[in-house]
């Protein structure tokens, strides 16, 4: 349905999005994952026609929409990263305005407002001013405003950032409902791996403006199929031990945690013994060792050497 081809954006000679290729099929939920400053919002802005790419193309059903932004605007709903609402107006008044600029009128408009309010669970408080809303409630109205005109594709830029778990769950449920029950396509941006794992069938991972991996969850996990994650709880922190572990040939990455270290290691025998011996050499006791198959979070760590959230 929608395709971005070799998108590139340069601000004052600085390339912030570089050669991005991605596509979304009808009814699909696709995740776009990356740490702060990776270029997610910039990519989304180009796809949704708000930003003109320095090069590359955006195609809708095979046709370029760069020169005809109206075509793409008609079918998408965008949930921006910032709360884009009139603080001085009530939720209802906001929705009424945003609905009417999509040419919704009369009963249909009223119905759509009631519908989206119910979807985000704020029917009771619709007449209060946005200014008086909590962060989570604002986020929910921010989403509602993008859904009024029943878009085929909703593009969400970190819709759950900085809110309480209850609102977050509500939003995730809403997105899932839209995708599974209404068949709406979703492009979901986040730096929460769990959210993307839960919602999306396919994931793109971005860092420093580039795509570093993409595919279904299983495909991504396969990147680390020859590896496993080892969480080692130690009696005391030891930077020297960490250094030594990093030097071991089978350790792909090692990182300090609250009470120990986390290792990604190549699957082979004898690893445990070597780790235990290393600990002894540094007079550190191992309290506990857990070994399990890697998560997407680990994949990200592996690919970038960084955690998703710094």
């Amino acid at each position: 349905m929608l395709e971005a081809m070799e998108l590139r954006k340069t601000f004052k000679g600085k390339t912030v999005v570089d050669n991005i290729n991605l596509y979304i099929e009808q009814g699909e939920a696709v995740g776009l994952l990356g740490p702060n400053g990776a270029g997610k919002s910039t990519t989304i802005s180009m796809i949704s026609s708000l930003l003109y790419p320095s090069s590359g193309d955006v195609r809708l059903d095979g046709r370029s929409v760069l020169k005809t932004p109206g075509d793409i605007r008609r079918i998408i709903g965008v949930v921006p990263q910032e709360i884009a609402l009139y603080e001085k107006l009530s939720a209802y008044e906001n929705l009424r305005f945003f609905g009417s600029i999509y040419k919704l009128k009369g009963k249909h408009l009223t119905d759509r407002i009631a519908n989206t309010l119910e979807l985000v669970g704020l029917t009771e408080r619709q007449h209060e001013l946005i200014r008086t809303y909590s962060g989570g409630m604002k986020r929910r109205i921010n989403i509602a405003a993008a859904l009024l005109h029943e878009p085929k594709l909703v593009i969400m830029d970190e819709p759950t950032v900085g809110i309480d778990p209850q609102s977050r769950n509500h939003i995730l449920d809403t997105v899932r409902k839209l995708n599974r029950e209404k068949g709406m396509s979703v492009l979901y941006t986040s730096h929460y791996m769990e959210e993307v794992e839960q919602l999306c069938s396919r994931v793109y991972i971005m860092d420093h403006g580039r795509l570093i991996a993409s595919g279904t969850k299983e495909e991504l996990l396969r990147i680390l199929s020859g590896e496993e994650t080892m969480i080692v709880q130690l009696s005391k922190p030891s930077p020297e031990l960490l250094m030594e572990l990093r030097g071991l040939p089978f350790v792909r990455s090692a990182e300090e945690t609250e009470d120990g270290v986390k290792l990604i290691v190549t699957k082979q025998s004898g690893i445990l013994t070597e780790v235990v011996q290393a600990a002894e050499r540094h007079h550190v006791q191992i309290v506990q060792i857990q070994v399990h198959t890697p998560s997407l979070e680990d994949v990200f760590l592996h690919l970038t050497g960084r955690k998703l959230r710094d």
């Binding site: 949704s48 026609s49 708000l50 932004p69 109206g70 605007r73 008609r74 998408i76 965008v78 921006p80 910032e82 709360i83 884009a84 609402l85 009139y86 603080e87 945003f98 600029i101 999509y102 405003a145 993008a146």
Partner: peptide
């Protein structure tokens, strides 16, 4: 500043409205 204008642009309305 609050990006409402982007929503307005996304509506595809003539900016002269």
């Amino acid at each position: 500043r609050e990006r409402v204008i982007e929503r307005i642009r996304l509506s595809g309305n003539n900016p002269f409205y």
